[in-house]
Amino acid sequence: MDTATHQSDEDILIHGLKSGNQSAFHKAVRLYTPGMLAVARFYLDHSAAEETVQDCWVTVIDAIQKFEGRSGLKTWLHRIVANRAKNHLRKAKREVSADFSETLDPELADRFAPNGRWATPPSLKTNESAQALLENGALSDCLDKHLASLPETQRSALLLYEAHQHKSDDVCNILDVSASNLRVLVHRARQKIFLMVETFQETGEC
């Protein structure tokens, strides 16, 4: 190993991957597979998505030699998955179907009167922090359930934008959607979670 004065964890990991170190791969696989799956599932069904992510890791063994670090490792991996998934889709002559036309969730849309004011206003505001709310295991489970039942396109957009903290430009690039369509997907997904939290707080049920 060379004697760089200061290396980030990511640099060390990249160095390990480049030298074909097994434990570096093990670490990277655990760290990056969830995000890579989120990317693949935007384009493909579950089993094809898993297969694509597996294949990607095998190609990474050689491809990592060409990684120059212009983007972060995560973004680089997500782009590899996206390209492979898109090829897969092209070969199968299929397209991603997502609805970008309506910004409002239908259930939320029903809560407005014809004059555009709230007919069924939101329930009272919660003052608990997210961390405090999540200590309630039932809420946490409910959130998992609702995230799982989102349309794949909405969930992938939400996870990449929110949980994986990608910049909008990167998500648009990886998912091949325009900035405004990404906004629609993220907003639709957030509304679903908003409605879930509201129901949960009112009824204690998922």
Binding site: R30, T33, P34, G35, L37, P122, S123, K125, T126, S129, A130, Q131, L133, L134, S140, L143, D144, L147, L158, L159, E162, A163, R190, Q191, I193, F194, V197, E198
Partner: peptide, 18 residues
């Protein structure tokens, strides 16, 4: 409440590894 939902999504590392 929408903002709280966003915080919740961020705080909830639902990235359960398969």
């Amino acid at each position: 409440n929408l903002r709280a939902s966003v915080d919740l999504i961020n705080a909830h590392s639902s990235q359960q590894l398969d």
